[in-house]
C-alpha cells in the first residue's frame, strides 16, 4: 500500500484517489465558503487561508533553451486542511504537498513532496513572500521578483521570475463560479512573469528563458458532486493577449465552462458558462489512459478559433493524484504557447 495514497485517505474524508477529482466538491463542514464581491488585501492574500479547505500556488512556464528547444515547467504547492484553522506543532490540521515537473520534447519529469504543517517543514508567508516545502522554494521581497527552485530524483531547476504586469482576477472580480449550483473559488493570477534560469536534467544543465503564469486559488468546495474533472487552458498569444479558460466535465456529459480574456495591459473580460468551448480533436493513449492531446478552442466573442496541441503528449503526472499537465502550442486565429491541465482521466 502506497503511503501517499493512505495519506489521502487519512486526511480527506472521502478519498480523492477513490472518487476522482469530483471529491473536490464534497461538503465543507466548518470551512469558510467563498462569497461574492471579494475584497482582496495584498500582500496578505498571497499567504495561506487556513479557514478554507484547499488552496494552491500554481506556477507554469513555457521556456526555450539556447537552441530554441521548447520546455515546460511546473511548480505547485497545495495546502489542504483537515479542519479549518491552524495549531502549533504536530497538532496543526494543515497538510502541504507539492508537485514539480519539467517537460522536454521527448521526456516528462515529475515528482512530489509531502509535509505536515505546524513544524516548519512547509508553509507560505506573505511578507516577504515565501512559499516552501522541504528545499523547494518560491520566494521574493514581494510578488514582483521571485526565485524558484525544486528538485526531484532525476531533475531540478533554479529560476528567477520578474512580473511585468498587474494581477488578474477571474470570474466576478476574483470570485470564480465552478458550477450551476454555485460552487466557487477565489481565483486570481499573475500571468505576466518573465522567467529565466537553469533546468537540471539527466543530460546536463540547460539555460532557459520564457514566460510564466502563476495561479492563486482557494476554496472549500470548488466542484459540485456531479463534476468528474476539468480541462484547463492558460494560453499566451504572440500579440501579448492571454486567455484562461476551463471547462468542467459533468457526469451527465454536459460541460460547465468559464474563461477570462486578458489584454496585453492586463485588463480582463470574463465570460460565463458556454462562451468558451474546447472540443477534443485527437486522443492518445499514454500510461494506459486515453487523453485528448489536441483541442479546438473557441471564444467567438474575441474571434478565437485555435488548435491547441500538446508539445509532449506524454506529460502524464504519475503521482499520488495522477493527471496530465504540460506545455501546448497554439495555431489558428491566434498563435502562441501555453499550458494545459487535464484531470479526472483515470
Amino acid at each position: 500500500m502506497n503511503v501517499k495514497i493512505l495519506f489521502l485517505i487519512f486526511f480527506w474524508p472521502l478519498s480523492v484517489v477513490a472518487q476522482g477529482f469530483s471529491d473536490l466538491g464534497s461538503r465543507a463542514d466548518g470551512f469558510a465558503n467563498p462569497e461574492l464581491n471579494p475584497t482582496f488585501s495584498f500582500p496578505t492574500d498571497h499567504g495561506p487561508h487556513p479557514e478554507y479547505r484547499i488552496e494552491w500556488w500554481y506556477l507554469t512556464a513555457n521556456l526555450n533553451g539556447p537552441d530554441g528547444t521548447a520546455y515546460g515547467l511546473q511548480w505547485t504547492l497545495f495546502r489542504t486542511g483537515l479542519r479549518p484553522g491552524e495549531a502549533p506543532g504536530w497538532l496543526s490540521p494543515q497538510v502541504w504537498f507539492a508537485h514539480a515537473a519539467v517537460t522536454t520534447p521527448d521526456q516528462h519529469f515529475a515528482t512530489e513532496r509531502f509535509a505536515r504543517g505546524g513544524i516548519g517543514q512547509a508553509g507560505v508567508e506573505a511578507t516577504p513572500f515565501r512559499a516552501w516545502i522541504d528545499e523547494w522554494v518560491l520566494e521574493g521581497e514581494d510578488f514582483q521578483k521571485m526565485a524558484l527552485t525544486a528538485n526531484g530524483p532525476n531533475f531540478g531547476y533554479d529560476m528567477s521570475l520578474q512580473a511585468n504586469g498587474p494581477l488578474v482576477f477571474h470570474g466576478d472580480k476574483g470570485y470564480s463560479v465552478k458550477s450551476e449550483q454555485g460552487q466557487a473559488s477565489y481565483y486570481y493570477s499573475q500571468p505576466f512573469f518573465t522567467i529565466d534560469g537553469t533546468l537540471k536534467l539527466p543530460t546536463g544543465n540547460v539555460e532557459v528563458s520564457g514566460h510564466a503564469w502563476l495561479d492563486r486559488e482557494w476554496s472549500s468546495q470548488p466542484l459540485s458532486d456531479d463534476q468528474s474533472g476539468w480541462d484547463w487552458f492558460s494560453l499566451s498569444f504572440v500579440d501579448g493577449a492571454k486567455l484562461m479558460g476551463f471547462q468542467l466535465r459533468q457526469t451527465d456529459g454536459s460541460l460547465y465552462s468559464s474563461s477570462t480574456w486578458i489584454t496585453p495591459d492586463g485588463s480582463t473580460s470574463s465570460y460565463p458558462n458556454g462562451a468558451f468551448s474546447a472540443i477534443p480533436l485527437n486522443n492518445k493513449t499514454t500510461k494506459d489512459r486515453n487523453l485528448p492531446i489536441q483541442w479546438r478552442v473557441t471564444l467567438p466573442d474575441k474571434n478565437v478559433d485555435i488548435i491547441v496541441t500538446a508539445q509532449n503528449p506524454d506529460a502524464w503526472m504519475e503521482l499520488s493524484i495522477p493527471y496530465w499537465e504540460g506545455p501546448v502550442n497554439v495555431l489558428g486565429s491566434h498563435i502562441g504557447q501555453g499550458y494545459l491541465e487535464m484531470t479526472g482521466y483515470e
Partner: peptide, 11 residues
C-alpha cells in the same frame, strides 16, 4: 504518515 515510507495496511 505524511512522509513515512511504509504504510499501515488496515488504515
Amino acid at each position: 504518515l505524511v512522509t513515512s515510507a511504509t504504510g499501515l495496511p488496515n488504515l
